[in-house]
Design a protein around this nucleic acid. Structure first.
Length: 230
DNA sequence: AATTTGTTCAACCGCACACGA
DNA sequence: CTCGTGTGCGGTTGAACAAAT
């Protein structure tokens, strides 16, 4: 019934990784490098499927990961990039050094979405809720399971009259980012950069001087300044 | 102190795509 | 061109923890 499993699941561990498994994976990748995820578990002596190993490495074990809280700048960058790219978490992550798509996705769902709603912005459309259709307003509020009328943090939000939404802190914050024009586009990248960056998976694993070209700072393609405002 | 409810985030799942045979 | 395989992505789940009752 259904598809066959992505890999041999008999005799594979699931759930949280142990310290020992982490150590084995790190040691193996240090010695052999990334790639060949399907065969890696066996070679590394891990009872995990390749996908699980890849995810663990990318999201947690990679040495270039920046752990810890997101900064205000990162928040704003994520919001801006999401308005451009939608739920393309991997593309957004590529522009945030040391952050993973999974981390950003989680952060979006737990923090930023709420933050935007507090500002009266629909996280789906990035438009003011009062500019959205009634359906959008309803979905943004109801489907996120957030009750604004009962939320202390959202005391400035009048659900009956989003036009009246005022938040001094957010107003100050908007002054810090006056260029947050959500009607954005990305200027066409130059050819060689485009080909290297868009040729994602393969080039990524082979671009292995010391890992990834986060932010595209080396290539220049992903430089935030290349985001062009209308 | 015990229980319930809410939140966070690591990990899983299935699909889509790229690529080589 | 088709098919099989490997990889990456985005959505979802659920365990662990925190806060509220």
């Amino acid at each position: 019934m259904g598809r066959s499993p992505c890999c041999e699941k008999a005799h594979t561990n699931k759930g949280a990784w142990t310290k020992e498994e982490d150590d084995r994976l790190i040691a193996y990748i240090r010695a052999r490098g990334e790639g060949c995820w399907r065969s890696l578990p066996k070679a590394a002596g891990l009872l995990r499927c390749g996908k699980s190993c890849r995810l663990r490495w990318i999201n947690y074990l990679r040495p270039d990961l920046k752990r810890g809280n997101f900064t205000e700048d990162e928040d704003e960058l994520i919001i801006k990039l999401h308005s451009l790219l939608g739920n393309k978490w991997s593309l957004i992550a590529a522009r945030l050094p040391g952050r993973t798509d999974n981390e950003i996705k989680n952060y979006w769902n737990t923090h930023i979405r709420r933050k935007l709603l507090n500002r009266g912005v629909d996280p789906l459309t990035h438009k003011q809720l009062n500019e959205s259709t009634g359906r959008h307003v309803a979905s943004a509020i109801c489907c996120n399971g957030v009750n604004y009328e009962g939320n202390k943090e959202d005391s400035n939000y009048d659900i009956k009259n989003p036009n009246e939404f005022i938040n001094k802190d957010d107003d100050d914050e908007m002054k810090k980012i006056p260029d947050l024009n959500l009607d954005l586009r990305i200027s066409p990248p130059t050819e060689p950069i485009m080909s290297s960056s868009m040729n994602k998976s393969k080039s990524k694993s082979k671009n292995n001087g010391n890992g990834y070209d986060f932010l595209g700072l080396e290539s220049g393609f992903l430089d935030f300044r290349s985001l062009e405002m209308k």
